[in-house]
Simulated assay, not measured.
Amino acid sequence: MDDNRAQVGVEPIIRVLATTSAKIALSTYYAHKSRPESARSLRDRKITRALRRIFDDNYSCYGARKLWAEINREGACGHVARCTVERLMAADGLVGIRRRQKRPSTRSADAEQCPVDLVDRDFCVTAPDMLWVADITYSQVLLSGVFAFR
């Protein structure tokens, strides 16, 4: 704001906000500007520098779990919670290498290899046990050795 004071100053913005339901005093901006930085933001900056250093020293591979273990092993920043490491990593854009996802063990067959649809996708029946649809490779249903099909 200070750089563009001639075009967009604090006073004109406060005057516009005064016409709305948000009542903000002009002194609020100046109080915020002169307020010292909080202890949390100072500690966060220190931890972020340490996380960035550890991350870069380890070929940008470490994720939150390993960074958390390493920063606590060093002890320079005191005890750091894992959720704090995750939050600061996200804020700083640090992302570790992820393990490859497992591929599914089965895949659908091609359309030309699928068997003919014996029930014509008509699942309406007039009485019980007129039509059973199951994949016999997975289903182990045996009713006295008799399967009821249409």
Rank of each mutant, 00 (worst) to 15 (best):
M1H: 09
Q7I: 13
V8R: 04
V8G: 00
E11D: 12
A18E: 08
T19Q: 10
T20S: 14
A22G: 04
A22D: 05
K23C: 04
A25H: 08
S27I: 10
S27Q: 08
Y29L: 01
Y30T: 15
A31D: 07
H32Y: 12
S34P: 01
R35G: 03
R35I: 05
P36A: 11
E37D: 11
R45L: 11
I47M: 00
I47T: 00
T48D: 04
A50Y: 03
L51A: 01
L51I: 00
L51V: 01
R53M: 09
R53C: 08
I54H: 03
D56C: 09
D57M: 11
Y59Q: 15
Y59V: 10
Y59D: 10
S60A: 15
Y62P: 00
E70Q: 14
R73C: 07
E74K: 06
E74R: 12
E74I: 14
A76N: 11
G78D: 06
G78C: 04
H79I: 14
C83E: 11
R87A: 13
L88W: 06
A90Q: 11
G93K: 10
R98A: 15
R100T: 13
T106G: 10
D110C: 13
Q113L: 13
D117T: 08
V119W: 08
D120S: 12
R121S: 15
D122G: 07
V125R: 04
A127H: 13
A127G: 09
D129C: 00
M130Y: 04
V133N: 02
A134K: 03
T137V: 11
S139K: 02
Q140R: 11
V141L: 08
V141N: 05
L142Q: 04
L143D: 08
G145E: 05
A148Y: 09
